[in-house]
């Protein structure tokens, strides 16, 4: 059976008057029903653009220039705008980072909740209201009937994010894309929201793409992790492998920059330098200027994705070295 979502060789380019800037290059991954894939990386690594590419909602001048996005049987890059409108909110939904700005300040919660039900389920206002109350109950909002009449500014940040989730899940989508939904919340609320997403995922059986830069959240929620750098996927593995045996130097760097609660004296390591922009010309591996293990080869030739195991890939020449070493070991 096909996975729920299969993205192959996705390339997203921005057309500017001077030149074309490629922001997402050769990204391939898949998500299955009930699975959570975390996309991790620094700001500007292409995480959000990857998710917007799936939604078909790239900013003006951005275009998918290569690759396929298969949702079930449907090829999303070939759908017309009208067909995409039927898919968005119905089969794929999205929640955003800032619950403060992702709700319309001049419309009531109830109005915004009813919208997707009225668009996709052709419900009338009455039926949609009943369903909205049910949804608010489901996401753990007390006295939902009164909430429907309230405006976003009357709710706390955590409440608003719950409302966002209720709106996104109103039509029980197959796939939920969560773009840093907990970044703007404090840790206790963050944990509640993560639990809520997990719970609803079990219930609906949807696949979740969770975009984040917080390794703590990754450990909590992910089944599999995809690490992105400079618009490329550098390492994909299941969550245990990422934390226990990270292969790519960038993944290692990310993990080293997370504070360890048990070791108050620990000095955090940083990854020197900053993320290359899409217009920086870098030969070979895009990470080599910042990589502590960079070799001569890294500067000249772009590494392919090495398969360490069926579920674990890493885009780094170090893998070749280890591979050949292990080969010699076997030969010897």
């Amino acid at each position: 059976m096909n996975p729920l979502l299969q993205v192959t060789d996705l390339e997203t380019t921005f057309h500017t008057p001077n030149k074309d800037l490629t922001a997402v290059r050769n990204v391939s991954f898949s998500v299955d029903h009930g699975e959570t894939l975390c996309i991790v990386g620094e700001s500007g690594c292409g995480k959000s653009l990857t998710s917007l590419s799936i939604m078909g909602l790239l900013p003006a001048k951005g275009r998918i220039t290569n690759g396929t996005i298969l949702l079930g049987e449907e090829e999303l890059t070939k759908q017309s705008e009208v067909q995409m409108e039927k898919i968005r909110g119905n089969k794929v939904s999205m929640i955003f980072q800032e619950p403060m700005t992702a709700l319309n300040p001049v419309l009531t919660i109830g109005f915004q909740l009813r919208e997707s039900l009225m668009i996709h389920r052709q419900m009338n206002k009455k039926a949609a209201t009943v369903k909205s109350i049910e949804l608010l109950n489901k996401v753990g909002i007390p006295s939902p009937r009164e909430r429907l009449k309230q405006y976003p500014h009357e709710l706390s940040g955590g409440m608003r994010q719950r409302v966002m989730i209720a709106i996104a899940l109103a039509c029980e989508p197959d796939l939920l894309i969560a773009d840093e939904p907990t970044t703007a919340l404090d840790v206790t609320i963050q944990a509640q929201i993560l639990d809520l997403i997990d719970e609803l995922q079990q219930e609906i059986g949807m696949g979740v793409i969770f975009v984040t830069h917080d390794m703590g959240v990754v450990a909590e929620i992910a089944d599999r992790v995809m690490v992105m750098y400079g618009g490329e996927v550098v390492e994909t593995a299941d969550v245990d492998a990422i934390f226990e045996a990270p292969q790519h130097p960038y993944t290692k760097g990310l993990l080293h920059s997370v504070p360890d609660v048990d070791n108050p004296m620990q000095e955090l390591k940083i990854i020197e330098g900053s993320m290359p922009g899409p217009d920086d010309k870098i030969t070979g591996c895009r990470f080599h200027p910042r990589c502590p293990f960079a070799m001569e080869k890294c500067k000249q030739k772009e590494p392919p994705l090495f398969n360490l195991s069926p579920m674990h890939t890493s885009k780094c020449w170090l893998q070749e070295v280890t591979e050949s070493e292990s080969n010699t070991v076997i030969r010897g």
Partner: peptide
């Protein structure tokens, strides 16, 4: 340019709506 308009688009709302 506001995020809630993008959020509405992710719900499949048409331009007119």
């Amino acid at each position: 340019q506001q995020e809630y308009i993008l959020a509405m688009k992710t719900l499949g709302a048409s331009d007119r709506r």
